[in-house]
Nucleic acid binder design. Structure first.
Lengths: 150, 150
DNA sequence: GATGGACCCTCTAGTGACTGGAGGGTCAAG
DNA sequence: CTTGACCCTCCAGTCACTAGAGGGTCCATC
């Protein structure tokens, strides 16, 4: 009895290793074990993992998910804290979209530069390494790798 | 003589550690050394690092930058290879924008759900953990962390 | 010549969020 | 009794840096 990790993985579209990872970092409580030392999950685990995955799909960081879970645990706290996390994340997403759109337009520009000849006269490479003056006018719409609400 | 790492860092708006990292992974050639074992860079290094940083600013991965550099080294190869990398990257950026826009709208929706009460009746948390049926209809616009042109 | 501070060196480990693999144990069917 | 699917732990790798420890170099000033 109890849900085995493989079944839980399938039900939540999560890899088995990821589930064990969530347990290791304390995001998902450690389940009981069978006689053969297999993890035996309950419906509560299924529900919590579903929550985690849904929040991850929406781009919340594991740290944000952790906060949301701990808030969900204390039903008496004001909802405003939850909203703040969500709003912060939404702002980060919108910023990211704007940044990437600028980037896309820049790429449009430099891709137009290619003269279809050999590399030595390629406009794309020239656009990447403009004459000089690299130290000034440096764009700051750098693409970060995370998506936190600052 | 030769440019010291700190000056190169300032000129290219790169951290000193990052420059050493690029050297360690073979992206930037090892410079000569002074008597006191300081790295002594040339203008060629400055130019190559500028290229790297500009490409990074545009979201190219280090692997893509490596390819672009190696293409730039062989002026006789056809430009098409360069264009392909750029086009692939642009496609990835545009896909990412579309994904994030969908995400943003989803966040708009769930943020509207908050009833401003306590956590126990919070619409946001409910939206995150819907009744069931989590295994079906799983969105695949997951926010990855890289931005490769597959 | 000593001292201070800015700069440089190497090496190691940490970040986020997993992913993959080695080397083994468990369980049910045939 | 063997096969194969599944499970276990532990460790290393990914990407692109970033931070820190523990030390060396250089130059100016006292």
């Amino acid at each position: 009895m109890g849900i085995k990790i493989g079944a839980l993985a399938k039900a939540t579209d999560t890899k088995v290793q990821t589930i064990r990872y969530y347990e290791a970092i304390g995001l998902l409580p450690s389940p009981g074990r069978t006689a053969g030392n297999y993890r035996a999950y309950t419906l509560a685990h299924l529900s919590q993992l579903s929550f985690i995955r849904r929040a991850r799909d929406l781009g919340f960081s594991l740290e944000q998910v952790r906060e949301l879970l701990s808030l969900a645990d204390h039903g008496d706290r004001p909802c405003a804290a939850v909203e703040e996390i969500a709003r912060g994340h939404r702002a980060a997403v919108k910023r990211k979209v704007a940044d990437l759109q600028v980037l896309g337009r820049e790429l449009d520009n430099i891709i137009g530069q290619c003269g279809q000849g050999t590399v030595s006269g390629c406009g794309i490479l020239e656009a990447l390494a403009p004459v000089q003056a690299r130290s000034m006018a440096r764009a700051d719409y750098r693409v970060g790798k995370t998506l936190d609400a600052e």
